[in-house]
């Protein structure tokens, strides 16, 4: 779970932990990239706009390294090009802020069950 905004991390990881998942929280692009390569994730939720790296850049780097876990991209910007680009890179879902936490948690749970 990577987002530079602490509220997102706090709320989402609360919800996810409540659903019985293990959560690693990071606040910037570089840390997200490292966590993705080292921690053996089942799923990542990343913010598109973080200090250091764009979400799409991070996905691209993971895919280049052969890491294929599903990635949810979270963003406040309404930019169709970015949406298309994320999906091209293999993002599993694209969520616009403001978010409904309950719904997002449900989606993530669904995704993890499918695997």
């Amino acid at each position: 779970m990577a987002d530079d905004a602490a509220p997102v991390r706090v709320l989402l990881s609360r919800h996810l932990r409540a659903a019985g998942h293990e959560v690693i929280e990071v606040a910037d692009g570089m840390a997200a990239l490292r966590a993705g390569s080292e921690a053996g994730l089942d799923l990542a939720v990343i913010d598109q706009l973080m200090p250091g790296m764009l979400g799409t850049e991070i996905i691209a780097a993971w895919r280049e390294d052969g890491l294929e876990f599903p990635v949810f991209v979270l963003t406040a910007i309404d930019d169709d090009d970015t949406v298309v680009h994320s999906f091209e890179l293999g993002a599993a879902d694209y969520i616009r802020k403001p978010v409904n936490m309950a719904e997002l948690t449900a989606r993530i749970n669904g995704r993890l069950r499918d695997k």
Partner: peptide, 15 residues
């Protein structure tokens, strides 16, 4: 600031 951030982030019941 913290309240504003949460308000921006959330929708529905939580907002």
């Amino acid at each position: 600031d913290a309240v504003i951030e949460y308000r921006h982030l959330l929708s529905g019941e939580e907002r």
